[in-house]
């Protein structure tokens, strides 16, 4: 009902998205630090939220934002994520001040704009991790075995980020990432 009222007032509808925040803190489990900031379902409300939270580059080390479709929690264990994986963009430390905010905003716009065409429903959400060594941005999809969908999403995503043509981004299945290892998880796909 509220959504219909907003649309009647000229707002541009979106499927509902949820924005989450967490802060890695050794004193408690990651899950306990996860907080839902808000949900929104119009373009106008997206910008109201975006304008009122800190830019990712201003967050302190250990913090994450996550934007997920309403009903999907930003964790591997969620039934919509557990068979999925992520397109991962790792940034060099100095890029926090030159590229991070642009890349994260571009990621958000790809998601809420549903810019992955018929493979859009495969996208569950996106996560940004602010870390000492390297910040990371990832787009999570729900089915790591859906090669056609995963590759389509990866190609569009890389193009939208305007990464150099020599840059390579990798896709990792969550089942591989979840295994504790001293090695980086292997890339299932690359674009």
């Amino acid at each position: 009902e509220e959504k219909k009222t907003k649309e009647a007032a000229g707002a541009h509808p979106l499927p509902r998205w949820a924005l989450w925040f967490s802060k890695n803190d050794r004193s408690r489990a990651w899950r306990d630090s996860l907080q839902l900031i808000t949900k929104f379902d119009t373009v106008e409300d997206f910008w109201a939220v975006y304008s009122n939270i800190k830019l990712a580059s201003r967050l302190s080390t250990g913090c994450d934002y996550a934007l997920f479709r309403d009903g999907i929690e930003p964790m591997w264990e969620d039934s919509m994520n557990k068979k999925g994986g992520r397109w991962l963009v790792c940034l060099a430390r100095q890029q926090r001040h030159t590229d991070l905010d642009r890349l994260w905003l571009e990621t958000l716009l790809c998601l809420i704009g549903e810019n992955f065409a018929e493979h859009g429903p495969e996208v569950c959400g996106a996560v940004i991790n602010i870390r000492t060594k390297r910040d990371k941005i990832a787009v999570w999809t729900r089915e790591a075995e859906n090669q056609e969908g995963v590759l389509h999403i990866g190609r569009i995503y890389k193009e939208r980020l305007r990464l150099s043509s020599t840059a390579i981004i990798g896709y990792q299945a969550h089942v591989d990432t979840a295994v504790k290892s001293s090695f980086l998880p292997k890339n299932k796909f690359m674009v």
Binding site: V43, E44, N115
Partner: peptide
């Protein structure tokens, strides 16, 4: 299907005062 918006369209709303 879900409604698609391109990036320029979305960016046009960034600094628009909230009217709702």
């Amino acid at each position: 299907g879900k409604k698609q918006y391109d990036r320029e369209f979305l960016l046009d709303f960034q600094f628009m005062p909230a009217c709702i």
